[in-house]
Design a protein around this nucleic acid. Structure first.
Lengths: 340, 340
DNA sequence: CTGAAAGCGCTTACAG
DNA sequence: CTGAAAGCGCTTACAG
């Protein structure tokens, strides 16, 4: 393989000069710089990443730690991942994607073996077992997802509390007084998906403040179970006029369910969801919804992480950034129907 | 940081002995082995990956190169990715995920800088610009996706030709004589998505052999355009009784479209698709379909790649493995309706 | 069965 | 403005 020694020899300079000419870390005469540049070109030199990492203690690699639980809907994670990898590349970093089930083992392995300069954690649980280690790790870490204890880490997430409030406010302002909220399955919450109850709690709270009724349910995450669930919820509350969905499968199943009930949105019921615009576009999720902002979260997380990596000493305090919910109108909400 | 020197010192042996005790590459007395083990435990030693890579020319990292084009449906890719990363981890490898648009640049960068021991290429195009480099690269590579020229690489893919044939055969055997095939958008094909026309061509060929009619179309990949497309196709061929879908968005839109036409499957029309079971489960894709076999392809690709990495000298010839289509019955096909 | 030493390919003080 | 040398933390022939 061609090394910096070969480049130096071809350029007729020392290895250190060749190295400096490439890094620009000290002033090099234009002639030498040009000779080195030519040698690099001719020989097709690319620095050996392992050797560089060893010498500099920098890998220019980011560790991206996801957890993809069997019955969760994993594909939604790809948008976070792409947000991370693309922005990382723009900033000069590659991304090591780790999906193994034992996230703690993965984090310690990558961190202790110095395979990455920093970490992005996906799918952060309320009481995430990776956090204690991350706080003492030599590399900085940012989270996508809000845990209970945010000390020592940077956090980016959709503002799920505001999302719950906005959903209720929006329908309340239109005159609705009885709503149903369908969340993701209970086991998602139990495994630490705090965002689910964060949205639900704030929706309930806001409803209480406004003096309106809200029925909250967990729904299945697969067909056809979620369809049955929806029928059951609608049967149980025939006077409800608004439906809030924090569950992709529910949004996908609802058109058929409404059809079977000879209902349509927003004529008979107003529907507002929380899912990614991309899924809405590919699949038939025709409802007004709050976007997950996945790639924006990925982007922002990486920017913050790289800033920390490259300015370790900066005394900046850790930040928690919650992206405010943005409603994408698809015409599925209106004033409640007037019953004679 | 704790190095193997620290371990050696704590165990009262030389660095080489410590190293051999850990690697097991030469016989070590039980006592020494135990002392080293203890020192590792006490000090919390993890080998530095960069140093090891430099010494051994092995990274224990696999490069996973995807292309995620803006208007393609990216989430489907996650299942391939997870198949790769999970199997890689089982075999002791981590995965560097590279999503940058310029796949050639990505491949040369990772390869030349020795950041990976081998490559898995996703989304391989008919005439993929990464292949010439891959053939001469120092690291072996396997493809998920069948290109025109398969020399020098291992290839894994769903057998799209057999898929097209099976779709036609299945409906033909039930008595259908006029079919419509809705493929992915034309630009997917133009960008190299050879699988699209591979399926379409073999379906057409098979239909010709059987003496039945098939109308083939490209469909949009987003809502609501694909819904309009479907209506148009159905309007154009009112006597068609079978619908073949090689387009996720079409499968998602079809329930509503059929409903609007007061049709149902399989009563009025038989429907058979080609998409992932996972999507079917989460979204409402209620049709009998051939699974994409994404994670199996990812798994198999990694197994082959690791075999090549670890037995470089093995004179095994390169293989092209096409997974035969497996139909998942969801009750959407039957004999064509009998018209009075 | 074990140790001292060389070497992997870089970067970066140190010296001029 | 440039070079010779040390060092990053491993592994592995070489020697005993």
């Amino acid at each position: 393989m061609v090394t910096i020694g070969d480049v130096a020899q071809a350029a007729g300079v020392s290895r250190s000069t060749a190295s400096y000419a490439l890094s620009g870390k000290r002033t090099i005469s234009p002639e030498v710089r040009e000779k080195v540049r030519q040698a690099v070109e001719e020989l097709g030199y690319t620095p050996n990443a392992g050797a560089r990492a060893l010498a500099t203690s920098q890998t220019r690699v980011l560790g991206l730690l996801g957890r993809f639980l069997p019955d969760e809907f994993a594909p939604a994670m790809l948008q976070y991942i792409l947000g991370v990898t693309n922005r990382a590349r723009d900033l000069g970093y590659d991304t090591l994607l780790v999906s193994e089930e034992d996230g703690y083992a993965a984090l310690t392995r990558i961190s202790d073996s110095r395979m990455a300069d920093g970490f992005v954690l996906l799918n952060v649980a309320e009481d995430d077992d990776r956090l204690p280690f991350l706080r003492t790790a030599r590399q900085p870490g940012v989270l996508i997802g809000l845990p209970h204890d945010t000390t020592g880490v940077d956090v980016f997430d959709l503002d799920f509390e505001a999302t719950g409030r906005v959903m209720v406010d929006t329908l309340s302002e239109l005159g609705h007084t009885e709503l149903i909220l369908v969340s993701q399955p209970e086991h998602v919450v139990q495994r630490g998906g705090a965002y689910v109850w964060r949205l639900a709690d704030s929706a309930r709270e806001r409803a209480a403040e406004l003096g309106i009724t809200i029925h909250t349910y967990f729904g299945s995450s697969t067909q056809p179970a979620i369809g049955d669930d929806l029928h059951r919820f609608l049967d149980a509350h025939p006077s409800a006029t608004g439906l809030l969905l924090n569950n992709e499968a529910a949004a996908a199943a609802l058109p058929t369910v409404l059809h079977q009930r000879e209902m349509s949105a927003p004529r008979d019921i107003s529907v507002i969801g929380r899912y990614s615009d991309d899924f809405a576009r590919t699949f038939s999720l025709p409802y007004t919804a709050i976007d997950s902002a996945a790639d924006e979260l990925g982007r922002r997380a990486v920017e913050q992480l790289v800033a920390r990596i490259e300015h370790r000493d900066a005394p900046s305090t850790h930040r928690v950034e919650l992206i405010p919910p943005a409603i994408q109108d698809r015409g599925s909400i209106a004033a409640p129907p007037v019953h004679p």
